[in-house]
Amino acid sequence: MRCKNCNVEIACKSSVCPLCHKPLVSDGEVPFPTPATKKILMGKFSLAYLVIAVIANIVCITLNFVLTPKILWCVPVLVSFIYVYYFVSVTVLAKRGFHKRILGQALILTAIFAAIKLAIGGNHWIFISWLPAVYLVSDLLMLIFIFKKKNEASKYIATLLLLCIFGAIPCISAYVFDLSVKLPSIIATSVSAAIFIICLIVCRKTIIHELKKVFNL
């Protein structure tokens, strides 16, 4: 079909000229698909969870300040809601590497324990047993994961290094808070360092290859 206004042949199916938008009649082909309109909605889980979390926390904060204002037990409740959201949306549902999920979990649990300690105070049992346990479990999961993917182990070495660095947190906290039982913390930190060194030795060839790429050698 020809557009007399623009003096060009319209070679696609259309009721108007694509240049001047004046009406025309055409029986040409459809060269491009029509894009579907997408409405971006907040995930049903996120929305429902947000509503429940806000209501529950308002109730908890109110009860806390009315009934037991000396102990801030509402803080662990708030932190727990944040943790559950993180666990479901990031650790379970997000498409990220297993190694990153392990590291993420270790870090967020550390942050939660620190928040509970600051809010309630005095509960050293969190740092004596729970924190070392989190890092021990993370280290072991990481070790299993790396040995399962031995050929690609070099890709995960940076995460392992970070886990090793953060693995020092239980030990540091044991000395900072002057905990009565230091052994679990020392074991957790030692295991983190040992796993890192074992991986370095076992996967040294792939790690050297990876370093060459990273530093463009």
Binding site: E9, I10, A11, C12, C17, P18
Partner: peptide, 18 residues
């Protein structure tokens, strides 16, 4: 552009993704 091109080079066929 197309109008001028058509006057200089003869037939111009146009398609669009609208």
């Amino acid at each position: 552009f197309c109008k001028k091109l058509a006057s200089l080079c003869g037939e111009v066929k146009v398609i669009s993704n609208f």
